[in-house]
């Protein structure tokens, strides 16, 4: 599965379009990470726990998007976009979407 946020893949031609595929996940941070974050809110700096948590969650959203594309029989997803939004306090939605295609 080729995943790209470009509209084409260099040297490949699009044979068939399958339309929109998407994957999302909503994650809440757990208390331990929140306590660390509370301390960091005094000292500042990177919240490594959150960085990893969001990276994992984004990977999961991507995996779900890929699963949709595989179900359609596509071998590539083009023009992929990510978005993040905080839905309630302490939880974030990670969302990935793109166009499923078959490349020659």
């Amino acid at each position: 599965m080729i995943i790209t946020n470009l509209e084409t893949v260099p040297g490949r031609r699009i044979a068939r379009h399958f339309g929109l595929v998407q994957g999302n996940t909503i994650r809440a941070k757990h208390v331990g990470r929140d306590i660390m974050a509370g301390l960091k809110n005094i000292f500042g700096g990177e919240l490594r726990g959150y960085t990893e948590l969001l990276a994992e969650a984004r990977q999961e959203a991507t995996d779900r998007m890929v699963a949709q594309a595989e179900a359609l029989g596509a071998n590539a997803i083009l023009n992929v976009r990510f978005s993040t939004s905080s839905v309630t306090q302490g939880a974030a939605e990670l969302y990935a979407y793109g166009t499923a295609v078959t490349l020659e």
């Binding site: 790209t4 809110n41 005094i42 500042g44 919240l47 959150y50």
Partner: peptide, 17 residues
């Protein structure tokens, strides 16, 4: 003729008091 793959980097920062 090249391979394409998605790369990403993320960081969460907090602001100090």
């Amino acid at each position: 003729r090249c391979d394409a793959s998605l790369v990403a980097g993320n960081v969460v920062v907090s602001v100090d008091y």
